[in-house]
Amino acid sequence: MRKQDDTTFLALLGLIAEGARSICVGLHITAINFFRPSVCERYPRRDGKPDWQPRPGYRGDFALISDAERPGGLRCIACLQCQNICPDKCIHITPTGKGKERHPKQFLIDAGLCMYCWLCVEVCPVAALTMTPDYETSTDRPEKLIRTLEQLRERGKEYPEPLKVEMARADATSVAPTERRGD
């Protein structure tokens, strides 16, 4: 095939021998790997063991942390900081209530637009919004990707506290959120 290849019979024979040798070396390595432990995992698992779980701090589906003391049953104070920092503008909050009573009446996250950058979780002053290790979020219709307040609340019931690896808060000072009015 190569134009510079020598096409004499001997050279061709040498080429064949070399090719056969490479195949043997390849097969040898494949054989070694055949006896190495398998790294693949069946999904979904059928042997009763739990499916693969990401590490804490994984940026998966969203949840709003519950707080029975607060109006609306959520820790969220509807300060709109997550809505403002979101690079994709995929969070839409309708706040209600005044002062300490302020809470979200509606909280929409369009997971189809979201790029899971974690900025909204990072900016939250009361650690009310979190991302969970739930990764099975695919649906057949784009509308189903939009998370509503109810869905977020439901999911939040499984998580009493946000899961995170030793989070670094980039900005320690924050504007008192209750004083902010919705933009």
Partner: peptide, 14 residues
């Protein structure tokens, strides 16, 4: 990853 931040990192190494 979005691991780096301006002035640092998202978090220290686990």
């Amino acid at each position: 990853y979005h691991y780096f931040r301006v002035g640092g990192l998202r978090n220290d190494l686990p």
